[in-house]
């Protein structure tokens, strides 16, 4: 029944046309489909399809990643407001840019995709200290800490991921809380995530969401 909408929604997402995507969703709503159906049968499969496409196409345009994630997040947010009861979230992640790093757009893509995949996102913003990452993950019962760093020195700093790892170790949290990293320096050196003490990394924002969902499932099967 939703098939016709799925096709035109996927088309709109592929064309990064947010107004067109919202039109499809609104049409589906006015035709009587529930917000839950729209999120679970339309939006989430579209995000997953994008992930597959992007994995196959390493040259995919970064601008398109941004726009795709933004559409997913916007549509999901609009639908969640209309849900009859709060949806069951699959987990929670604390995300932010590393200490000394003011780049925030990379984590925006990740957050957008995560939200549409029913992951709670606690966004700490930019220039976040290791203590704040770990303290918040503890109080919020998050399964994953995601640290974005766009510069080599913020990726490798003792106050960034390495600091988070040290605190997790010190507080005996390594089984409950996993550490994911992402950002330009990790693309230049695919082994870098190990050097900074992370459990996983992803080359782009859309696949990062998938990697984080996998980490959540490791902690919370």
């Amino acid at each position: 029944m939703l098939d016709a909408y799925i096709q035109s929604y996927n088309q709109a997402v592929f064309e990064t046309d947010k107004p067109a995507a919202l039109d499809v969703v609104n049409q589906a709503l006015s035709d009587g489909f529930s917000p839950e159906d729209i999120v679970f049968k339309l939006v989430i499969p579209a995000v997953e399809l994008m992930m597959t496409l992007i994995e196959k196409d390493p040259d995919a345009n970064l601008a398109q990643h941004f726009m795709t994630a933004q559409i997913a997040a916007d549509v999901t947010e609009k639908m969640l407001e209309k849900f009859s009861k709060p949806p069951e979230m699959i987990g929670r992640v604390v995300i932010g840019a590393a200490y000394g790093d003011l780049h925030s757009l990379g984590k925006r893509i990740v957050s957008g995709c995560l939200k549409s995949l029913m992951v709670d996102v606690v966004d700490l913003g930019t220039n976040v200290s290791a203590e704040k990452f770990v303290d918040t993950a503890m109080t919020e019962n998050a399964q994953v800490i995601a640290v974005s760093a766009m510069m080599v020195h913020t990726a490798t700093s003792e106050k960034g991921s390495l600091g988070v790892r040290a605190l997790l170790q010190e507080r005996g949290l390594e089984q409950q809380i996993k550490l994911a990293v992402g950002g330009a320096p990790y693309r230049f050196d695919p082994e870098l995530y190990i050097k900074v003490g992370a459990d996983a990394w992803a080359p782009d924002g859309v696949t990062a969401a998938k990697v984080i969902v996998d980490l959540i499932r490791e902690v919370k099967p």
Binding site: T16, K18, A63, F66, Q70, L102, H103, R108, G125, T126
Partner: peptide, 14 residues
């Protein structure tokens, strides 16, 4: 860098 609305505008202007 610290303005949230700016990020939305950035994505909209892509």
């Amino acid at each position: 860098g610290g303005v949230f609305e700016y990020e939305n505008r950035f994505i909209d202007n892509l």
